[in-house]
Design a protein around this nucleic acid. Structure first.
Length: 243
DNA sequence: ATTCATGATTTTAT
DNA sequence: ATAAAATCATGAAT
């Protein structure tokens, strides 16, 4: 039966090309044409929805192509029925073949989409796993906060947001930093003593400046310097209690 | 190449 | 949900 052959040939070669291109599109969406190595969370979600969209549109296209093809075949059969008798059984068989073909192609699409998502996922995880040191400035700010709140180094959500803004990092990075800092400080206070003193002195200096400024603003004439040490009460407690 | 510091993630406990 | 603790993985110093 040559109709059979034609059906199979066309069924395979036609849409299968579409399947390939769909897979390629999905893969492209996954790997992202962007040259940027670090994929942001928003990018990740955007690409995910992109993949989903591609999948759905392709699926719809296949559905449509399948319907078109079946009607096409039906027409051919009807034409042939003029020259030879065609049983309903035969028509049913044709339709079955067509549907099997298309559904296998759809499976292929599903698989390639799945693959694309996996690739995207692994890339995202890789990117997330990459560690970039914070800027010197950012660690300064964080350390300043930490050592000036050493007795209770748990910034509130609001404080975290402010720190994040000042350091141009995310809030969760601030949380990570404090989590790491607290545990590492506690684990080896001695190692951090120098740093602690350094930042205590630093904040003391800035405080002293503030005091000086305040003095200058408030007292136009100041015969006596504020207080002896020049430093306001020491800002760091030795009891670094963390728990 | 090894080691250390550090940001991120996972696991565990509350 | 949040923090501690353990662990992972990378960047930088040696």
């Amino acid at each position: 039966m040559r109709l059979d052959n034609m059906l199979l040939a066309e069924g395979v070669s036609g849409p299968e090309k579409g399947g390939g291109s769909a897979a390629a599109a999905a893969a492209a969406a996954a790997s992202g044409g962007s040259s940027d190595n670090s994929i942001e969370h928003s990018d990740y979600r955007a690409k995910l929805t992109q993949i989903r969209q591609i999948y759905h549109t392709e699926l719809e296209k296949y559905e449509q192509a399948c319907n078109e093809f079946t009607t096409h075949v039906m027409n051919l059969l009807r034409e042939q029925s003029r020259t030879r008798p065609i049983s309903p059984k035969e028509i049913e068989r044709m339709v079955g073949i067509i549907h099997r073909k298309f559904s296998s192609i759809q499976m292929q699409l599903k698989q390639s989409t799945c693959e694309a998502v996996m690739i995207l996922r692994s890339r995202f995880l890789d990117a997330r796993r990459k560690r970039r040191n914070f800027s010197k400035q950012a660690t300064e700010i964080l350390n300043e906060y930490f050592y000036s709140h050493l007795s209770n180094p748990y910034p509130s959500e609001e404080a975290k947001e402010e720190l994040a803004k000042k350091c141009s990092i995310t809030v969760s990075q601030v949380s990570n930093w404090f989590g790491n800092k607290r545990i590492r400080y506690k684990k080896n206070i001695g190692k951090f003593q120098e740093e602690a003193n350094l930042y205590a002195a630093k904040t003391a200096v800035t405080a002293a400046h503030a005091v000086a400024a305040a003095v200058q603003n408030n007292q136009t004439n100041s015969p006596t310097t504020p207080n002896s040490g020049g430093y306001p009460a020491s800002c760091y407690q030795s009891d670094g209690r963390i728990q």
